[in-house]
């Protein structure tokens, strides 16, 4: 039975491994003098709404959920802050793939063609590559591969389906995050010469820990313990491995401009934003 009021984190359960990850973090924080608990949500919108209500103290937000939290906070006269993020959340890019044996020779050839993307709310596999294409003057028929909508593309399945569609010829291009190109080659989804990259987006940032109005007093301790996690510590390393990072970095918000332009152009979160006003 927990006696003192814990610091409560919200996270989205995009995979069963999310439970052992946060149970592990709970053990770490509890043993370092920060009573900690977590609540899992099935989608990011529910998590941001709970955060606004004060059900949780901090949210592990996707980049889109960060913008949702930031804008919803702003319209309520509040502030959202990104307090920490993974080293692997910084400076990602997305790429647009076409078949080497197909008719698409250059980017402009994609105009009006079928663009295979991931889930409709995936920043990396849908929103960001589509805005990058649009800003380069390329718009086409968007073919979405909806895997776990509400989870903002955290599940890799949408990107894999987009690439499968490209290989099957049902789309003319597939949009994925940069690192998945190597990952899909490793899992033998395609061989390198079969596919060409016609566009690489500008760098952007991914997830962050978000607090509202500075968060409760325990926020400072939470952040300090996070940033103090060392990959050399064998009790911590499995958690970092599972969550996909080597070191936690201070939060920064300079890497979300591309996604902001995307949601402004496509009106992605407008209806939701109105619903929480």
């Amino acid at each position: 039975m927990t006696t003192s009021k814990p610091f409560v984190l919200g996270a989205v359960a995009y995979d069963a491994k999310v439970v052992p990850i946060w149970e592990g973090f709970k053990t770490y924080f509890d043993s370092h003098g920060l009573p900690f608990d977590f609540v899992l949500y099935s989608n990011y919108e529910k998590q941001v709404e709970a955060h606004l209500r004060g059900d949780i103290d901090c949210a592990w937000n996707s980049p889109l959920a960060w913008l949702e939290a930031e804008r919803a906070a702003k319209q309520a006269g509040r502030t959202a802050t990104a307090i920490a993020m993974r080293d692997t959340d910084c400076d990602l890019t997305s790429v647009v793939l076409v078949r080497s044996d197909g008719p698409i020779r250059e980017l402009a050839d994609l105009r009006g063609k079928r663009i295979g993307v991931g889930a409709s709310d995936s920043p990396q596999a849908t929103l960001i590559p589509l805005v990058a294409l649009a800003e380069a003057g390329v718009e086409g028929h968007v073919v979405r591969h909806e895997v776990m909508v509400g989870k903002h593309g955290d599940h890799v399945g949408g990107e894999r389906d987009a690439v499968k569609a490209l290989l099957a010829g049902t789309v003319d291009a597939a949009c994925i995050i940069d690192g998945n190109r190597l990952a899909f080659i490793r899992e033998a989804l395609f061989v390198p010469p079969a596919v060409r990259v016609v566009l690489q987006t500008a760098p952007y940032d991914h997830c962050n820990f978000t607090v509202l109005d500075g968060g409760p007093p325990a926020t400072a301790k939470f952040r300090e313990l996070l940033l103090g996690m060392s990959y050399d510590d064998e009790r911590v390393r499995p958690l970092l491995d599972m969550e996909g990072l080597k070191v936690w970095k201070p939060g920064r918000t300079s890497g979300y401009a591309l996604l902001e332009r995307a949601i402004d152009r496509f009106g992605t979160i407008e209806p939701w934003l109105k619903s929480v006003a």
Binding site: T88, T93, D178, G179, L182, V197, Q200
Partner: peptide
Amino acid sequence: VIDVPAWARA
């Protein structure tokens, strides 16, 4: 230009 930054990040 795609793979080196992505690999290094991972």
